[in-house]
Simulated scan of single mutants.
Amino acid sequence: MNETTEAVVPLTDEECWARLQTQSLGRLVTHVGDVLDIFPVNYLVDESTILFRTAEGSKLFEISINDEVLFEVDDHTDADAWSVVVRGHAHRLEHSDEVERADTLPLKPWIPTVKYNYVRVVPTNLSGRAFVRGEEPDRYGIQQY
């Protein structure tokens, strides 16, 4: 029996999107030069993309230099857990029709700040895994030969 293959199950793209839709907090990873940054953002799934709002600052500056990002979301219970990573390109919505449409979506800041900018992450790749939680197998017991 291989505990690893039974405890870790790859998710299909459809399963990844279904799990992303159940959450509203993720982590955006940016990369500029030798600097990696990670930002918690509240988000929503919009037509197979990730949409979030932000104020002027580091996130917008960094994606204007390098739009390649990672976006990670996970969740867990006592019995199971999962993680989804979205690799893609982030861009600020600039056309008025895109912004007007985004304004109709239920995406509100979690903290009392004004966030005028919408950012969309368009995926190039999804990867996800589901995990069955449990006790660690005995590492030091009698080994099978």
Rank of each mutant, 00 (worst) to 15 (best):
G33T: 05
I142M: 10
Y145M: 09
V132M: 06
E94G: 04
L20F: 06
T4A: 11
G141P: 02
R92P: 01
N125Y: 10
G88C: 11
V85Q: 04
A55M: 09
L60E: 02
L93M: 10
P109L: 11
Y118V: 05
D67L: 03
T113E: 10
Q144C: 04
E136N: 14
R92L: 05
T54Y: 03
F71W: 02
H91C: 10
L36G: 04
D80F: 10
A90H: 00
Q143N: 11
T12R: 07
R19Q: 14
K115Q: 15
V119M: 01
Q144K: 12
E72K: 02
F39D: 07
T22R: 15
C16M: 08
R53A: 10
E14H: 08
D103E: 15
V8I: 15
L60M: 12
L105R: 10
N2P: 06
R139L: 13
F39Q: 04
Y116T: 14
D74F: 05
V41D: 03
D13H: 09
H95L: 15
T124D: 12
V9I: 14
V35P: 03
T30W: 02
S24T: 14
H89T: 13
Y43P: 07
P137W: 06
E135T: 11
Q144I: 11
Q143L: 11
E100M: 10
F52Y: 05
E56C: 08
